[in-house]
């Protein structure tokens, strides 16, 4: 439990740091982007939007920066992320609220599937170390590792979506459907999610497989695995309870560290497939220079990544008794 307390404190610090970066970043940019905005929208800005920009970027030079910061924090505490410029008068939190569930659904599911597949492939590779399967997989993954997400997404979209034409290539559900909890709507949503999630799985599975392979190889050389063999323990038990259980631990830590990468890749995938999640929203915001929205999305994504990290930490502490139960060491 001491371990989890320490992690919680870390995440609180990290979150405060994120908010602070979020606050200072636009102010530290050369050529205040807010001024560019003012000149772009000029008199067309209404008071609410003006206020939103003001808080995001601190137009009022006479206000001390410390006050601006406190004001910004106060707004955040009320869940107020300002007003969007591009989708005026929609609020930033409202826009994010609509997009977030789609991202959680797509990225969460694909990541879990990819993690599980990768762990299985990696274990088999390690056990057949140097064999045909291992050689093929390591070579194959070296390449999937190296290709940009968005290009795999494009290729997927072109080959499967466009040439073959079996799966829908954009959006989260057909435009003519009204979101309900009916079976046909759910089916429609799943069909739309297939290509983007295939892309995410395809590009990230290699990461888990290669890592799991390497940690398993290291674990297989541990004394307790050799001793398990000496004890005549069945191969299945050795693989699952001795090698697997221990080899997966560093991967869970790795999971936390890779969340940033995963989310980044997922964002690009969303953009290619016009999937209505946070990534796509961010892309729209960037194109239309909707700074309050950009800032809000950055914050929410950072927060989600921290939350995912925390989940990984809790999982880790459940799987490793050295963390869960104190002891002599």
């Amino acid at each position: 439990m001491r371990y989890l307390m320490r992690r919680i404190i870390f995440y609180v610090v990290a979150f405060v740091a994120t908010i602070t970066i979020n606050f200072f970043l636009p102010r530290a940019m050369p050529g205040n982007p807010a001024e560019a905005l003012m000149s772009k929208f000029g008199g067309r800005l209404n008071p609410l939007a003006l206020k939103s920009i003001e808080i995001a970027f601190g137009l009022h030079e006479h206000e001390p920066i410390w006050n601006q910061y406190l004001q910004y924090l106060g707004q955040l505490l009320h869940g107020n992320l300002g007003t969007s410029l591009a989708y005026y008068p929609a609020s930033v939190s409202g826009l994010i609220g609509t997009a977030l569930p789609w991202t959680l659904f797509l990225v969460g599911l694909s990541t879990i599937i990819s993690f599980v597949i990768g762990i299985i492939i990696g274990s088999i590779s390690a056990w057949r170390f140097g064999g045909a399967f291992d050689t093929f997989m390591s070579t194959f993954f070296t390449f999937t590792y190296a290709f940009p997400y968005f290009w795999i997404a494009l290729a997927c979209l072109y080959l499967i979506g466009y040439l073959w034409g079996v799966f829908p290539i954009s959006g989260a559900y057909s435009m003519d459907l009204v979101p309900t909890l009916s079976g046909s709507f759910v089916f429609n949503v799943i069909r739309h999610a297939i290509l983007p999630s295939l892309t995410i799985i395809f590009t990230s599975v290699g990461y888990w497989a290669v890592n799991m392979r390497n940690t398993t190889i290291t674990t297989l050389a541990e004394d307790y695995v050799t001793m398990a063999e000496a004890k005549g323990i069945t191969l299945r038990r050795i693989l699952l309870r001795y090698a697997g259980r221990n080899a997966i631990l560093p991967n869970i830590t790795g999971f936390a560290m890779s969340m940033g990468f995963i989310v980044g890749g997922a964002i690009l995938t969303e953009i290619v497939f016009s999937y209505p999640g946070l990534g796509n929203l961010l892309f729209q915001a960037v194109q239309q220079e909707d700074y309050p929205l950009i800032q809000g999305i950055l914050m929410i994504i950072s927060f989600s990544v921290l939350a995912a990290n925390f989940v990984a930490d809790v999982t880790y502490s459940l799987l490793d008794p050295r963390v869960r139960v104190g002891g002599n060491q």
């Binding site: 541990e222 004394d223 001793m227 004890k231 005549g232 069945t234 309870r241 008794p321």
Partner: peptide, 24 residues
Amino acid sequence: LRHIKWKKVSIVAQSAMNSLNPVL
């Protein structure tokens, strides 16, 4: 081999410190 192991011959390893599975 697996059936003979531990029944006829067993080992106390050099590094008995690390010869137990840490998670079980």
